[in-house]
Simulated scan of single mutants.
Amino acid sequence: MSELTHFNEQGRAKMIDVSDKAETTRTAIAKSSIIVNETIHSQITEGTNKKGDVFAVAQVAAIMAAKSTSSIIPMCHPIPLTGVNIHFEWNIDKSSAHYEVLIEAEVKTKGVTGVEMEALTAASAAALTIYDMCKAAGKEMVIGPTMLLRKTGGKNGDYKRQF
């Protein structure tokens, strides 16, 4: 049976000690999505949303979220990020009135622990920000799924999601 690394000798939560881990370049790419209605799609693409440029605000929110992950996820270490990049892409099927924003967050660091949580947090924050900025035009938006697509670096090696 493997040792539970996030519990101390009293059975209470602890942040694991990464002092002796090797510093490596680490990356993680996560994705999320949000399904919106046609009105919201039009507002975003035509730049008519009353709160402003939806993707620009969501991009900044995602970057801020990646940088703040250790403040909201209790066992995450504060990590000096070396890069955060967010991409948005539309997946549209007009015949079924399906308007979906695909969100991809890529996070990089050179350090002793990975950035999977930072990438997942960034993708989630982007989707939540789109919801917040567009909720006046329809609250039936659906967020997700959110998932890790790839990660590199670290003692566990690389990971690529198999679909």
Rank of each mutant, 00 (worst) to 15 (best):
Q162L: 03
W90G: 07
P145I: 07
V101A: 14
G138N: 10
G153C: 03
G114Q: 13
D158R: 08
T152C: 07
D93E: 09
E106N: 09
A127M: 04
K139L: 01
C134H: 10
R161E: 13
Y99G: 04
G157V: 11
M117T: 05
A119S: 09
I92Q: 12
N91A: 03
Y99L: 02
L120P: 00
S96A: 13
K160Y: 04
E140Q: 15
G154E: 14
K108G: 00
V142M: 14
M133P: 11
K160M: 09
G154T: 12
V101K: 14
T113A: 12
R161F: 07
T109D: 08
E140F: 13
K108L: 00
C134D: 15
G114M: 11
H98S: 14
L148Q: 02
N156T: 10
N91E: 06
I92R: 13
D132R: 12
K155E: 15
D158H: 07
I103C: 05
M147T: 02
G144I: 03
R161H: 10
Y131K: 13
D93I: 00
A123G: 05
K108Y: 00
T146Q: 10
E100Y: 09
K135F: 05
N156V: 06
M133W: 15
V107F: 04
K139V: 00
Y131L: 11
M147P: 01
G114W: 13
D158Y: 05
M147A: 06
E100N: 14
T109R: 04
A97Q: 15
A136L: 08
D93T: 01
G157D: 15
S95F: 05
A125P: 06
V101N: 13
L149E: 13
D132C: 09
F88A: 08
T146C: 11
A122M: 07
V101P: 11
W90R: 08
G153L: 02
I143E: 01
V107Y: 02
V115F: 09
K139T: 04
W90K: 07
T146S: 13
K155I: 11
A119E: 03
M141N: 14
A126R: 02
E89G: 08
G114I: 12
K94N: 14
L128D: 15
A136H: 09
R150L: 03
E89T: 07
A105S: 15
E100W: 10
Y131R: 13
I143H: 01
E106W: 02
N91T: 00
G154W: 10
K155A: 15
D132N: 12
